[in-house]
Amino acid sequence: MAGLMTPNSLDELAACLAIGNVRVVAGGTDWFVRDVESFGEEDTLIDLSGVAELRGVTLQGGGLRIGAGETMTSLAGSPLVRTHAACLAEAAEHVGSWQIRNRATLGGNLAGGSPAADTPPALMALDATAEILSLRGTRSCSVEGIVAQGRAALAPDEVLVAFTIPLPEGRISAFGKVGSRKEVSIARLNLAASLRRSGGSLSNARVVVGTLGSAGRLCPGAGEILIGSLDLEERRRAFCSALVAVVEAAIPGRSTLPYKRSAILALGEDVFDALMRTSDEGRGRS
């Protein structure tokens, strides 16, 4: 008979991890649908939902710290996330259905390893770092690094505890997604981008395209164009062209290429427009 444990704190969680052959479940949105298949009679399931330290959204030491157990609903509704990590709030707002958003966690969305996940590109665009707990202690790793390693990034006994997003002055961000429906749709393509504006100038662009074989692909070329010196219309066009080039390079020969090459144009336009709009609003306020 498989075991079942319900730790209420990180300390208790650490003790649970020590028994070996463990699997963890947080929101559980993938557990019975996918992960339970590989769960054996000798394994133990650890329910993370009672661990208080996995929750919370706080400003800490110049960064935004988000517990890995925060749900999509709480991220989408959090004023702190909306203000400091807009693209993450937008991504969370369009994950699955309301029922799913009430369960799905930020940690689970990354740990699940799906190339179509919506929050990893946003976390990458925001240059987030993950805090990971295991018997071997706590380590940190960039979300970019975790995404690059795919599902192998986390050992079975490793638990995502929190994410920290640095908060440089004047950063704005935006997220876009193309699925088969407006709501409740797995992304065919998603795009997150952030940049800094100070005075009239833009800098530090990070542009991430998701669902091209991995949950996030950094596009430095598109980022350079975003903050470059072209006039607005030309910049918009060049930004979209750069994204098309990213898609073509990422999935050459795939049957989905013709579609994604076209759809990325829409995402490029929408995200570009959202960033420039936010940028203008920012200038208007200051």
């Binding site: 193309v178 088969s180 065919r188 989905t256 013709p258 579609y259 076209s262 759809a263």
Partner: peptide, 11 residues
């Protein structure tokens, strides 16, 4: 008329 078919037809 899936999105992919529409994009293909437009192309």
């Amino acid at each position: 008329l899936t999105p992919a078919r529409i994009v293909e037809a437009l192309a």
